[in-house]
Computed example of a mutant assay.
Amino acid sequence: MNQISLVNEQSMNNLMTSLDIAELTGKRHADVMRDVRHEIEELGVEIGERIFAHTSYKDKSNRDSPCYKFGKEGAMQLALKYDAKTRYKVIKRIEMLEQQQNTHSYMIEDPVERAKRWIIEQQEKQLLIAENSVKDQLIGELKPKADYTDKILQSTGLMTITQIAKDYGMSAQKMNSILHELKVQYSQNRQWLLYSKYHAEGYTHSETIPITHSDGTPGTKLNTKWTQKGRLFLYQLLKKNGILPTIEKRNEV
Rank of each mutant, 00 (worst) to 15 (best):
E42W: 00
G44Q: 06
I47G: 01
E49H: 05
I51F: 10
A53T: 07
H54F: 10
H54S: 14
Y57E: 02
Y57G: 06
D59K: 09
S61W: 06
R63N: 14
D64C: 04
Y68N: 08
Y68K: 10
K69P: 00
K69I: 15
K72M: 12
M76L: 09
L78S: 05
L80M: 15
L80V: 06
K81D: 01
Y82Q: 01
D83P: 01
T86R: 09
K89H: 12
V90T: 03
V90C: 02
I91R: 03
I91G: 00
M96E: 14
L97I: 14
E98A: 04
Q99V: 00
Q99R: 04
Q99H: 04
Q100A: 04
Q100N: 10
Q101L: 09
T103P: 00
M107A: 12
I108R: 08
I108G: 02
I108A: 07
V112I: 15
K116A: 05
R117W: 00
R117F: 01
I120T: 14
I120R: 09
I120M: 09
E121M: 15
E121V: 07
E124N: 12
Q126K: 02
Q126D: 03
L127F: 05
L128V: 01
A130S: 13
A130I: 04
E131H: 01
E131C: 01
S133N: 06
V134G: 04
K135Y: 13
I139G: 08
G140W: 07
G140Y: 08
G140Q: 13
E141Q: 12
L142T: 02
K143E: 15
K143F: 10
K143G: 00
K143S: 12
A146C: 02
